[in-house]
């Protein structure tokens, strides 16, 4: 079971197209669409959003992504009416980039909060409101004194760090209980990884803190050394 995602757009075509794009990178994630009005016009419909939320209910939670302003308002109204709003989060993120990042995180097994964060991280930390979420640190682990595990891995695949490898790394790391940076950027953020523009032969320096730190470093190392399954 993974977190499901609801796309609320003014246009049925935009909602369906965005969901199609997400499905390419996250085939196992339930992405439901509420695009356009009930009679096929441009606009948003409370009925459609409620129907999508109803369909999505019963899983590990739902994250809503929206396009223009009134889609946000319709989604917020839907939350006022929803049966179980606790499991439903509204992400403040650009629709297409946010949806891809959220889907990839959900595909990797991230929980509903982490999926929302993944969507919102595409804006970059400078535009996020409020402090970053605090992670619980398990007893006995040492923090503030450097990473628990590190690794350096050379990219061997021809294309280097492009969208699919970034999605694989970010998706898997989202599901682990570890703070991971790759060459200084958030390893759980697909878009941050892509901004590294790391080509073949580049070395990825991975630093991880937290319970799953060792697994996280091994996960990235395994992917990189296997060339992400690419030539």
């Amino acid at each position: 079971m993974t977190v499901s995602i609801v796309v609320v757009s003014h246009s049925e075509n935009i909602a369906d197209g965005a969901a199609e794009l997400a499905a390419q990178m996250a085939p196992d994630v339930l992405v439901l669409t509420a695009g356009g009005t009930a009679d096929g016009r441009i606009g948003t419909s409370l009925e459609k959003v409620l129907a999508a939320l109803d369909h999505a209910a019963g899983g590990d939670g739902t994250v809503i992504l929206t396009d223009l302003g009134s889609a946000v308002m319709t989604a917020e109204s839907a939350l006022e009416f929803a049966e179980d709003p606790a499991g439903v989060l509204l992400a403040d993120a650009p629709l297409v980039e946010g949806l891809v990042a959220a889907s990839v995180a959900a595909q990797g097994g991230a929980d509903v909060q982490a999926v929302k964060r993944a969507a919102e991280a595409v804006r970059g930390p400078s535009q996020n409101s409020g402090p970053p979420p605090q992670r619980e640190v398990s007893e006995g682990s040492v923090t503030g004194q450097g990473p628990d595990f590190t690794g350096d891995f050379e990219l061997i695949n021809q294309a280097g760090m492009h969208a699919r490898p970034a999605a694989k790394i970010a998706g898997g790391l989202s599901a682990l209980d570890a703070e991971v940076t790759v060459n200084g950027v958030d390893g759980a953020s697909m878009t941050a990884l892509m901004t590294l523009a790391a080509g073949k032969g580049s070395v990825l320096h991975v630093e991880a803190r937290g319970v799953d730190a060792e697994r996280a470093v091994n996960y990235v190392g395994g992917l990189v050394q296997a060339g992400f399954g690419e030539p």
């Binding site: 606009g43 409370l46 917020e76």
Partner: peptide, 11 residues
């Protein structure tokens, strides 16, 4: 909320 379609619906 269900029938207007635009921002005026939820508002």
């Amino acid at each position: 909320m269900s029938k207007v379609g635009g921002a005026a619906g939820p508002l």
